Amino acid sequence: MMTNFFSIFDPPTKIFNLSLNWIKTFMGLKFIPYSFWFLPNRYITMWNFISSKLHKEFKILMGTNKFYGSTFIFISLFFFIMFNNFLGLFPYIFTSTSHLNLSLTLSLTLWLSFMIYGWINNTQHMFIHMIPQGTPTILMPFMVLIETISNIIRPGTLAVRLTANMIAGHLLLTLLGNSGMTMPSYLIIILIFAQILLLILEFAVAIIQSYVITILSTLYSSEVN
Rank of each mutant, 00 (worst) to 15 (best):
N48V: 07
K59W: 07
I60T: 09
I73M: 09
Y43G: 06
S35I: 15
E57W: 11
L87N: 03
I60Y: 01
R42V: 06
F86N: 05
F58R: 04
I60D: 05
F86V: 12
T64L: 05
T64A: 11
H55F: 08
I44A: 03
I44H: 05
L54N: 03
P40M: 05
F38T: 07
F49I: 07
S52K: 12
L87F: 07
S76L: 12
G63P: 09
M46V: 15
K56V: 06
F74C: 01
N48E: 14
I81T: 05
I44L: 09
K56S: 13
M62G: 01
T71M: 04
N65V: 02
L87P: 00
I44G: 00
Y34W: 07
P40H: 09
Y34Q: 13
W37R: 05
F38W: 13
L54K: 01
N48A: 11
N84H: 02
S35E: 15
F36Q: 13
W47C: 01
F67C: 04
L39V: 13
I60R: 13
M82I: 14
H55K: 14
F74D: 09
F80T: 12
K56L: 10
S76Q: 04
N85L: 00
W47K: 09
S51C: 09
F83V: 04
F79E: 02
S52T: 12
I50M: 05
T71Y: 02
L77T: 14
G63S: 03
F83T: 02
Y68T: 07
